[in-house]
C-alpha cells in the first residue's frame, strides 16, 4: 500500500504537469469565448476539451495534495490505527471536494 502511495504520487505529479499545461493552453490560447462575458463563459464551459482538462486538474491536484499531506502527517509519531483513520478521512475529503467541484464545471452542459 505504501509503495503504491509513492508510485501514484510520482505518477499524479507527472499527470499534473501535463494537465496544468493543457489547462493553460486551453484556457488562454485556444478556448472559444475567451472574452469574460456571460456568453463567453457559457460557450467555454460547453467545450469538451476545457471540461476534461479542468476535471483532470481538479482530480489529480486533490489526490496529489492529500496524499502528500498524508505523508507529512505520518512523518510524526502516528499509530497504525490512527494512520488508517487518517487515510479514510483524507479519501472522504478528496471525494467530497471532487463531488463539490465537478458540478460547477459541468454547469452549462445541461444547457
Amino acid at each position: 500500500m505504501r509503495t503504491w502511495a509513492w508510485i501514484l504520487q510520482r505518477a499524479s505529479g507527472a499527470v499534473l504537469v501535463f494537465a496544468l499545461g493543457l489547462h493553460w493552453v486551453v484556457q488562454h490560447h485556444v478556448s472559444p469565448g475567451a472574452e469574460i462575458t456571460f456568453a463567453g463563459v457559457h460557450l467555454k464551459l460547453q467545450w469538451l476539451l476545457y471540461l476534461v482538462s479542468d476535471v483532470l486538474l481538479l482530480a489529480f491536484a486533490l489526490f496529489h495534495g492529500l496524499n502528500g499531506l498524508r505523508t507529512v502527517i505520518l512523518d510524526f509519531r502516528v499509530s497504525p490505527s490512527a494512520a488508517a483513520v487518517l487515510t479514510v478521512v483524507l479519501v472522504l475529503v478528496g471525494l467530497g471536494a471532487l463531488l463539490y467541484g465537478v458540478p460547477p464545471i459541468m454547469a452549462f452542459l445541461r444547457g
Binding site: 505504501r2 509503495t3 502511495a5 505523508t71 505520518l74 512523518d75 502516528v78 497504525p80
Partner: peptide, 11 residues
C-alpha cells in the same frame, strides 16, 4: 524496509 517506518519516511 517497505513499511510506514521504512524507506518512505526518507524525504
Amino acid at each position: 524496509v517497505a513499511g510506514e517506518d521504512g524507506v518512505w519516511r526518507c524525504h
